[in-house]
Simulated scan of single mutants.
Amino acid sequence: MARVVDLTGEDVTRQRRKERNYGTKTDLSSTTVERGNTHWAEGSNVNIDGFLGVAGTQRVTGLLDVTGTFNGSGTNNLDGTNNLSGDNNLTGPTEVSGSLDVTGPTNLDGVLTINGDTTITGDTTITGLLAVDGPTTISGTLDIEGATTVAADLELIAGGLLKAGVTKIEPNGKATFGDVVIDPNSIYMIQAPGGNMVSGAADQISLSSSSSSSVSLDSTRAELDYKGAAKTTLDGSKAQLSFGTTLVKARAGAIDLDAAKTWLTGQIEVAGFARFQGVGFYAPNLPSTSNPPNLHITSGGQVYRSTWTP
């Protein structure tokens, strides 16, 4: 005779109370739960060796540990901390609304669009084209090792200095090209080992050698000064360079020759009036003739050819 179990007895009631509080072990080979709830108490393990299909919403409030491949084809909302230590392939659009910290190497093969402020504190290497359409501010050192092309204006402000080998351009306009200096703020506009270009006032400019020669131009004369001890004289209207007594000056209506001697090796023709202001006229190599004299000199020193016959 089979044993009869009293389902209303104390033993069955106690067992049902344990199942409600602590759960029970049941082998489920094919089970459908409709509009029910299944609770696995703390310390329980659920092992699924086959396929797990979830058609509805899946919520994980604790740790989700995935050691294999994780494929997410739909929208994936990850609100908590996510540690992804393996390869992660994201083929669809990805939106990150919070902080994104990447401590390892990161490869971005596609287009990267950043609409907000971006701060990069570590070393950054870009092997392809870097196109910046908006304003760019670089507060640190910028080192460019390759060829650089600037299609628009290049402006250095706030005390910037442009250097290129022996070439230096300062913000005040001074430019140094090796041994040649261009300084618009100095009386010596151009300074070179062989001489200088000087501009002391408006409409006045001079070229001088490093030792004793100069060419000066202004609104009143063109002047060539050669040899002698060099000196510079400045006043409120001009800068005067003087190099001794050998001077050629072209001015309005006259040409001045100031030298100890003036040598003419060829012929000289004077179409106008010639006046000698010195104490005498010396011509040691004049040809001789036996003809009577026919010159007349006035008391004022003017010379005439005389037609008088004795």
Rank of each mutant, 00 (worst) to 15 (best):
S237L: 06
L108K: 02
D153E: 10
D258N: 09
G236C: 07
L78T: 08
N76F: 15
L156C: 09
T307N: 08
A230T: 09
L52T: 11
R59F: 12
A151C: 03
V180E: 01
L142I: 02
T245P: 00
P105M: 13
G228E: 02
A252S: 12
L217P: 01
Q191C: 02
K163N: 09
N285Q: 13
S199Y: 00
Q240E: 14
R35I: 04
L63S: 10
A192F: 04
L64I: 00
V46L: 12
Y226S: 09
S288F: 11
K18E: 09
E223F: 11
S214I: 00
V279W: 04
T26H: 10
K25Y: 14
N285T: 11
D258R: 02
G301A: 09
D6A: 04
D27A: 11
L130Y: 06
L154E: 07
Q58R: 02
G280R: 08
T149Q: 09
T233M: 10
V12E: 12
N47M: 08
G244Q: 00
A239G: 14
A164R: 10
S44Q: 06
R3F: 12
T265Y: 13
A175I: 06
L295S: 12
T307S: 14
N107I: 07
I114Q: 08
L64W: 09
S73G: 15
P184M: 03
L224E: 01
Q240D: 14
K261A: 07
G92T: 04
L161G: 03
F51R: 08
A250D: 01
Q58T: 04
T265E: 14
P310N: 07
G160P: 03
G134W: 00
R16F: 15
Q204M: 07
S212R: 05
D143G: 12
D101G: 11
M189Q: 03
S210L: 04
G134V: 01
N77V: 14
K25T: 06
D65T: 07
T81G: 13
P292N: 03
V150C: 05
D143I: 09
R59A: 15
D143T: 15
L257Y: 13
A55G: 15
R251S: 15
V5C: 05
I297A: 12
G23M: 01
L130C: 04
F273C: 01
N115Y: 14
T13Q: 10
A254F: 05
L28C: 11
A192C: 10
S139Q: 05
P310A: 10
L78G: 10
M197L: 13
G134A: 11
T262R: 03
D117H: 08
T309I: 02
S44M: 03
D133K: 09
S73I: 04
R14T: 15
T94I: 11
V198C: 01
L84P: 02
T67N: 06
S216I: 00
G165V: 04
V33K: 08
T167Y: 14
L286I: 05
D258Y: 04
L90Y: 15
T220P: 01
T103R: 03
D153R: 05
S139A: 12
V54P: 00
G86A: 08
A147F: 11
Q204H: 07
D11K: 02
D65A: 13
V248Q: 00
G43D: 02
T176V: 13
